[in-house]
């Protein structure tokens, strides 16, 4: 099956070739883990390497933040906008949801104008303020995600995780249920230094890597590296050496 490649070193291999076409892909992580960078890289690579124009829908950051962040990786987003390959739209969840529910709305005309194939929605966390009722919120998200599919977009949806380390808590599973794939970015403390981990928790309709990989934000963007060898409890944020666990489980008894 054809895949929508992220072009991010190591990630497409984890995704068994890339994201599925027209799929909604959730990237969740704590502040600073690299969700927006991963999203921008997905859009930038789409335009420059795969000739797939893209849209960035921002609910919080001003567009100049993306231009400036992009510049630090050598991605000239302004030029791509001028060339009609990219649009950075500043809006709100209620407007994007209502616009996409209509026919010929502003957002739809932008999608058609540039022939967008990819979209970054940054971030879905802002949908939380639309309704306190989890059932209603899930309905809104479901409608929104389906409207992106209907428009022929492969989407990358970011969501903030409140916890810096360890397991997330709270009623956050609604989006993960609706999304086609679910990527988790985590901080991990190893020998007094902070590293970053990436895990593909779910990829609907496809096999995917099950191991937890290290990644770094390098000068040209994100690079997914090798898996964490010889450690367990990575997603807890404080992994232990496997040997320590063995000792704890069998020797110390």
């Amino acid at each position: 099956m054809e895949r929508i490649k992220s072009g991010i070193t190591g990630l497409d291999e984890m995704l068994n070739g890339g994201f599925l076409p027209y799929s909604a892909n959730l990237v969740e992580g704590a502040p600073g883990t690299g969700k927006s960078t991963l999203g921008m890289q997905f859009i930038y690579n789409g335009i420059t390497r795969f000739d797939q124009p893209g849209l960035i829908l921002t609910f919080e950051e001003f567009p100049h933040q993306y231009y400036s962040d992009g510049e630090s990786f050598g991605w000239d987003l302004r030029s791509l906008e001028k060339a009609g390959k990219l649009r950075v739209i500043m809006t709100s969840p209620e407007v994007s949801q209502a616009s996409l529910a209509q026919v010929d709305s502003h957002i739809q005309s932008v999608i058609a104008e540039i022939g967008a194939a990819r979209i970054l929605v940054d971030s879905l966390s802002h949908f939380d303020r639309l309704s306190e009722d989890p059932v209603a919120r899930r309905g809104l998200l479901y409608g929104f995600i389906n409207s992106l599919r209907r428009e022929g977009l492969t989407s990358l949806l970011t969501r903030e995780s409140p916890a810096l380390f360890g397991e997330i808590e709270g009623p956050e599973e609604d989006v993960a249920f609706v999304a086609d794939s679910y990527l988790l970015l985590r901080y991990v403390e190893i020998e007094s230094s902070i590293r970053k981990a990436l895990l593909v928790l779910k990829l609907r309709g496809s096999d995917h890597a099950k191991d937890i990989r290290q990644f770094e934000i390098m000068h040209a963007g994100i690079e997914v590296q090798s898996k964490f060898e010889g450690r367990e409890g990575i997603m807890s944020g404080s992994p232990r050496r496997m040997a320590d666990s063995f000792v704890e489980a069998f020797v110390k008894r």
């Binding site: 001003f62 567009p63 649009r87 950075v88 500043m90 809006t91 407007v95």
Partner: peptide
Amino acid sequence: SENPNTTDTAVNLARY
């Protein structure tokens, strides 16, 4: 002019 692709309500524009 700085954010030409903005599309939003008065409430959110006021915030921006």
